[in-house]
Design a protein around this nucleic acid. Structure first.
Lengths: 346, 346
DNA sequence: GGGAAAAATGTTATCGATAACATCACTTCC
DNA sequence: GGAAGTGATGTTATCGATAACATTTTTCCC
């Protein structure tokens, strides 16, 4: 269809989107004026603004944030968020609350999953920092020395979320997982339980669930009661893992009168096992979880668990990061307590 | 501590990370050589490479991907992924499988949630395209005209996932939700069910669950059986919504002998209601879900549901996108069928 | 050992937006 | 009426990495 002799470039090649310069030319103004219109910055006459916006619309101009971020380092609107995993009701909520808060304020989030592996967090961090983000939100409680160096060198605001770090690199917002486990131990003791077991999946000391388990068993020991047994599966912390873990533990250790599960999913699985085998809860055995998983609402008995203000942590963390970016004062350490909910299963 | 007369810049100011040029100077080579070493591209002498890497390490140089992406548009390693929501077991799995596949190949993902609102998808897309991504993965079945224009103008590979689009903008990989619903209808009919109801939450015709519901009721009607009633809550599609929806529907419509639930979470909630009220499943009433949610494994009876190859869709979509980026041939339309799993609840 | 090929490295122009500064056209006010 | 101010817009340098091309060094073979 191309006719020889036809000027090849009436309109700029559509292969590549229009640039600021093309909009400027079409509107008969300088690039700076278009830039000012796009950013709603500085003063532009209404008539000029209208003309520019008309050309923006006509040419389908999409601002190039890469060029913008490149030109002015401080203008980055990118925030990195690293959580343990994407397939978790709790972390999904955390992520959602963060994403909503940040996108409302005009930030984009770049998400990573570290799978409880500090090395994976460090690798992700390296990729992230290459994008020169405005800030970072982390859930990893432990960072590799390399990651710590990178974070320090980046000199950007960062929030360590989820597990409270009383000596944060910058800001920490969360709860104390160790204490949360200890609290459940004291609760079980107060209900007269003495032969107590634990069912979980995490083995790595870097996992927060292990901190809860430590707090739990330390508190028991402090009261002169030894943990009778624990079952740590090599699997995701799922319903089925709870079912199977309960089965394994009960077959191995007899006369247990209470089980602390790594999370509510596993607790629900444990309850399903008890129900299938005619083990009465809480009469024969008590079961408690962690997380305040809403699915527990459909159980015949309210699950004994620790409710976690997940969305609150996410929202506060996002807001703290933005406050830091704006140079507003922010408390270094913010405890957002988890609340033990007695329920009816212990 | 600053002593007057001290040369102010022995080392470059640490406020800002080292640049390629500084590394080059320190290693006594040109910027290009450093660039080649960092990208493992072109030929560099081992000795030179060692020297450069030593300086990279010493200076803590982090490559600036913004500058890189800016310099060579095609070098973008950013991929946008938009899913309905972050708090969903199924979409969490989808996201995770995509994220793993892409990060292994050296891409970063920028994630968005559109909450079944095409306008939200369009807004997210505008933000994303400003970052000039290498490609996009979408789950929205319906796009606003503006979004379609933007996508076409961007001329980047994109994959429409989850629900199969037989006339995709570029590539579509997924299953047919309408057919999936119809299949369940035929299954229920084959089991002799005739007074059938539906429990869900979605109302917007843009939601895929509504497509399943349509396929379901159309197939019933095609067999001369009318849907006896449906309950659409204004809530998240959760366990509790299933419990409550079941309660509402059964109180409103009598003599139902089967219920199709929007997803497995709701089906489990429905089963919990039945169990609490002494309604026998499947004798008094049949219950089916959708999704192949693994939590169903702990139920006393295997749930009748449609198993969705979520991770497979995610992996195939990521791979298809990368293949398109590399200019390799890719099938436009790839059906990844969902499989009805009879179970024991219908 | 000389010349061609191959390997290693360097030079220059460039991407698109923005900060900082410069200029111009109007008001306003004494 | 002219100086001072203010609002609107333009000019120039710049960010860091890379493609494309240019140059130098090394290798290898007859």
């Amino acid at each position: 269809m191309s006719v020889p002799g036809t000027p090849p470039d009436h309109e700029p090649d559509t292969k590549k989107g229009a640039s600021l310069a093309e909009v400027a030319k079409a509107a008969g103004v300088s690039r700076m004026t278009v830039s000012r219109v796009m950013r709603n910055e500085g003063r532009v006459a209404d008539e000029t603004r209208r003309r520019v916006l008309a050309e923006v619309e006509r040419l389908g101009y999409v601002p190039n944030r890469i060029a913008a971020a490149f030109s002015a380092d401080r203008a980055s609107t990118l925030v990195g968020v690293c959580i343990p995993r994407l397939t978790s009701a709790l972390f999904g909520e955390l992520l959602e609350s963060i994403d909503r808060a940040l996108s409302r304020l005009g930030f984009q989030t770049m998400i990573g999953a570290h799978e409880d592996d500090p090395a994976a967090e460090a690798a992700w961090l390296r990729e992230l920092l290459a994008w020169r983000p405005a800030g970072v939100l982390l859930t990893g409680r432990v960072h590799t020395p390399g990651a710590t160096d990178m974070l320090r060198a980046a000199t950007i605001p960062m929030v360590e979320m989820w597990d409270l770090n009383t000596t944060p690199l910058d800001v920490s917002i969360g709860l104390n997982h160790y204490d949360s486990g200890a609290e459940m131990a004291r609760f079980m003791l107060s209900r007269g339980r003495r032969r107590i077991g634990y069912v979980g999946t995490a083995r790595s000391p870097q996992t927060l669930a292990v901190k809860r388990a430590s707090g739990f068993s330390d508190a028991l020991r402090g009261a002169g009661v030894a943990l009778q047994g624990s079952e740590c599966l090599n699997d995701g912390a799922s319903f089925y893992a709870g079912y199977y873990g309960m089965e394994t533990l009960l077959n191995r250790v007899t006369n247990l009168d209470a089980i602390y599960c790594q999370n509510d999913e596993m607790a629900i699985g444990s309850l399903a096992y008890c129900s299938a085998r005619g083990v009465r809860v809480p009469d024969d055995i008590g079961v408690a979880g962690w997380g305040g998983y809403q699915a527990a609402a459909i159980l015949p008995r309210l699950l004994t668990t620790t409710a976690v203000p997940t969305r609150r942590i996410g929202k506060l963390s996002a807001e703290a990061l933005v406050a830091r970016l704006r140079g507003e004062p922010v408390a270094d350490v913010q405890l957002v307590p988890a609340v033990l909910r007695p329920g009816a299963t212990v």
